[in-house]
Design a protein around this nucleic acid. Structure first.
Lengths: 254, 254
DNA sequence: CCGCCCGTTTCGGTGAATGGAATCCCGCGC
DNA sequence: GCGCGGGATTCCATTCACCGAAACGGGCGG
């Protein structure tokens, strides 16, 4: 009936804390602000309960009231910045990302694997770069992104199995949706040492990515250059991304 | 006895949700990970209670267990990125910040006022920029930063009153701690239209900032260039920051 | 004017949450 | 090897914070 995606994951938890946290989760990336009724519907909580818990979240400061709704507040942003895992990585990577941006003036991403998705931890962009959908904190399926292919190609075989089990969907006509073809593509990725995305996630958009490797030889992250298919000569950019990725890997391993 | 700052703000709340959220707040920016005992002490919660609630936070995913402790997780970072207020501003500002970085190769900040502090929403930096203490999500007193002075100089008079009430402390020998001198400095800031910080927050570090103005003429944010006092010629940088700030203001007002 | 849907408030019953106490599990010193 | 201190974890009887159906108020559209 309504355009809202069904967000309910299992039954409503009985514990107050879990219910309150579910309210936070109910805010999707799409929605700037939500009404009480929407939040109650999404979380499955009775309206009075949602109302009471939201009141508490507002008092805490993580949520703020607006005329006719609720939205996540800056305080939550600040809290999130304290998380050590993305922070160290982002701060170490930033200089390298800036170098790549300056050299290419295209979109530069830092991403990690999260489940079966590539999750963008940082995005450096500018006026001259082609506008694309990705956002910091946003995600795309691993199988149709340059960074994601690295996690699949260089990671344990089980990862790919999970991705295939979850199913491959078309994002563009060029998205690789045949498991066999994807395997071939990942094999090539592995032997090349870098990954490509030729309009597989967004029409007209291509990318090249190189892996960040930890001391044990595992892929922990990836950096990519993304831009207009027409303008980008991916192969020509390979040395730059790979050099940056290798330098960052070395710095992180220290 | 212990080096931990006293984090308790008032008495322990009785509501479960507020208690759980207090556990999240207990993670300062300094500490990568905390033990159960530390968290219980900081929040004032009995150990079994803290243990139970942390278990729930871990199940939710916002906190993760490590060998011998707890830490904030990537999920919290992602959640924070969804907050609309900082996000729109950051995304709009990024191209301008990149331009400034490319032109100067110094540290570029985007900041807003939060209470009596300047809060950094974005930081663009690189290898050639002087390393400084500021971090995304971090804060410094408004009275000793270039961005902060703008909020005080261009904002309502009450802001300054609050800052003075909170007290002025030395961060460096050059920090302005005399209310009269600070007023003079803010007057000059107001008439110039941009703000300076000459080693007032960190030794050897200077900065220049320009304000982001909304449609009603209020300061909503500020951008700054920060670097080595020796290397930076602040006055020479003024046109660049001011132009960027004015352009961003116009874009946001649209 | 009326019906609809939203947000807000009320309130008595109840089970989720509580936290003191007991237990377990180290690492350390002797 | 053995006792000891400090942290983490488990138990469980008590209780009070939480619940949510129901009722209420208020704006909007028909």
């Amino acid at each position: 009936m309504n355009g809202e995606p069904e967000r309910r994951t299992g039954p409503v938890p009985k514990s107050v804390l879990a219910r309150g946290l579910r309210l936070l989760d109910a805010f999707g990336s799409g929605d700037a602000e939500l009404t009480l009724a929407q939040l109650a519907a999404r979380t499955g909580l009775p309206k009075p309960t949602a109302h009471r818990l939201l009141g508490e979240l507002v008092r805490w400061g993580g949520v703020e009231r607006t005329a006719g709704g609720y939205r996540l507040s800056m305080r939550l942003f600040v809290l999130g910045q304290r998380a050590p895992r993305p922070r160290g990585l982002r701060e170490a990577a930033l200089p390298y990302l800036e170098d790549l941006y300056e050299a290419t003036h295209e979109n530069i991403h830092l991403a990690v694997l999260d489940g079966v998705d590539t999750l963008f931890l940082e995005k450096v962009t500018g006026r001259r770069a082609m506008p694309i959908v990705s956002r910091v904190g946003g995600r795309l399926p691993a199988y149709c992104t340059a960074t994601g292919k690295l996690f699949l190609a260089l990671g344990p075989a089980d990862r790919l199995r999970q991705v295939l089990a979850a199913g491959l969907a078309h994002y563009t006509p060029r998205t690789i949706v045949m498991p066999g073809l994807l395997r071939r593509e990942l094999d090539r990725t592995l032997e090349r040492g870098y990954a490509l995305n030729r309009e597989e996630s967004e029409a007209g958009v291509s990318a090249i990515a190189a892996p960040i490797i930890d001391a044990d030889g595992g892929v922990t992250a990836a950096i990519s250059i993304t831009g207009s298919s027409r303008r980008l000569d991916l192969e020509r950019l390979a040395p730059a991304v790979r050099t940056a990725a290798r330098a960052l890997s070395r710095e992180l391993a220290r």
